Simulated scan of single mutants.
Amino acid sequence: MNNPVTNVIRINLEKAKEVALKWEQASGSELSAYCLEILKEIGCTDTELPDNLQTREQQLNFITGFASFAFGEVQNVQSFN
């Protein structure tokens, strides 16, 4: 029996860093609004940020993490061998 193919996401750190640097200059209200936009994009219907996205640092980490995922590319695990 063959092993099933497993995919991984390899992030693009350079693009994620560019996004992070851009948003570090943003106001608190801009950060909150963008986090809500990301949440809406992934299917959340809340109109307020959850408890774990209340601080500027949490919001920047969330935005950077989302950018890392969004700019990532799916690759076959076997290609890393």
Score class of each variant (00 low, 15 high):
Ile42Val: 06
Ile42Glu: 03
Glu73His: 11
Leu31Asn: 14
Ala33Asp: 15
Asp46Val: 00
Thr47Pro: 01
Ala26Ser: 09
Arg56Thr: 04
Leu39Ser: 03
Ile63Thr: 10
Ala33Tyr: 08
Ala70Asp: 11
Asn52Met: 01
Ser27Arg: 10
Leu13Tyr: 12
Glu41Trp: 05
Thr64Phe: 00
Glu48Gly: 02
Thr6Glu: 15
Glu37Thr: 12
Glu24His: 09
Leu21Gln: 12
Pro4Thr: 11
Asn2Phe: 06
Val74Arg: 09
Glu24Ala: 06
Thr47Glu: 14
Ile11His: 14
Ala20Met: 02
Arg10Val: 06
Arg56Ser: 02
Ile11Pro: 07
Arg10Tyr: 06
Thr45Asp: 14
Val19Asn: 05
Pro50Asp: 00
Gln59Tyr: 06
Asn81Arg: 15
Glu37Ile: 01
Leu53Lys: 03
Asp46Cys: 01
Arg10Cys: 05
Leu31Thr: 15
Glu57Gln: 04
Leu13Phe: 07
Val5Ala: 11
Gln59His: 05
Glu57Val: 01
Asn61Met: 00
Asp46Trp: 04
Ile9Tyr: 07
Ile11Met: 05
Thr6Gln: 15
Thr47Asp: 15
Asn76Met: 02
Asp46Glu: 05
Phe71Tyr: 12
Arg56Gly: 02
Glu73Val: 11
Glu24Trp: 04
Gly43Phe: 03
Cys35Phe: 09
Asn76Gly: 02
Ala16Ser: 14
Leu21Asp: 07
Glu41His: 04
Met1Tyr: 14
Leu13Trp: 10
Gln78Phe: 11
Thr55Tyr: 13
Ser68Trp: 05
Cys44Lys: 14
Glu48Ser: 04
Trp23Arg: 03
Asn61Val: 00
Ser27Trp: 12
Gln54Ser: 06
Leu49Glu: 12
Gln25Pro: 00
Glu41Asp: 05
Gln59Cys: 01
Val8Lys: 14
Leu39Thr: 01
Asn12Cys: 09
Thr45Met: 11
Lys15Met: 10
Asn52Leu: 04
Leu53Met: 00
Glu48Ile: 01
Val74Cys: 02
Phe69Ile: 08
Arg56His: 03
Leu36Asp: 10
Arg10Gln: 10
Met1Leu: 05
Val77Met: 12
Phe71Val: 01
Gln25Leu: 04
Trp23Asn: 01
Gly43Asn: 04
Pro4Cys: 03
Glu30Met: 06
Ile11Val: 15
Gly28Phe: 10
Glu30Phe: 02
Asn2Glu: 11
Glu57Thr: 06
Phe71Arg: 03
Leu36Gly: 10
Asp51Glu: 11
Asn12Trp: 07
Pro4Gln: 12
Phe80Glu: 12
Trp23Ile: 00
Gly28Val: 08
Met1Pro: 04
Phe62Met: 07
Asn12Glu: 14
Ala26Phe: 03
Ser32Gly: 12
Glu37Phe: 13
Gln54Glu: 07
Leu49Ser: 09
Pro50Glu: 02
Cys44Ser: 15
Arg10Ile: 04
Ala16Cys: 06
Ile38Cys: 08
Glu48Pro: 00
Asn2Ser: 06
Ile11Gln: 13
Glu18Ala: 07
Ala26Val: 01
Asn2Leu: 09
Asn2His: 10
Lys15Cys: 03
Leu36Asn: 12
Asn76Glu: 13
Lys22Ile: 07
Val8Tyr: 15
Glu41Asn: 06
Ile9His: 03
Asp46Met: 03
Ser68Lys: 15
Asn12Ala: 06
Leu39Phe: 09
Glu73Ile: 10
Asn81Tyr: 13
Glu73Trp: 06
Ile9Asp: 01
Gln58Asp: 08
Leu60Asn: 05
Val19Asp: 12
Val8Ala: 05
Ile63Lys: 08
Cys35Gln: 14
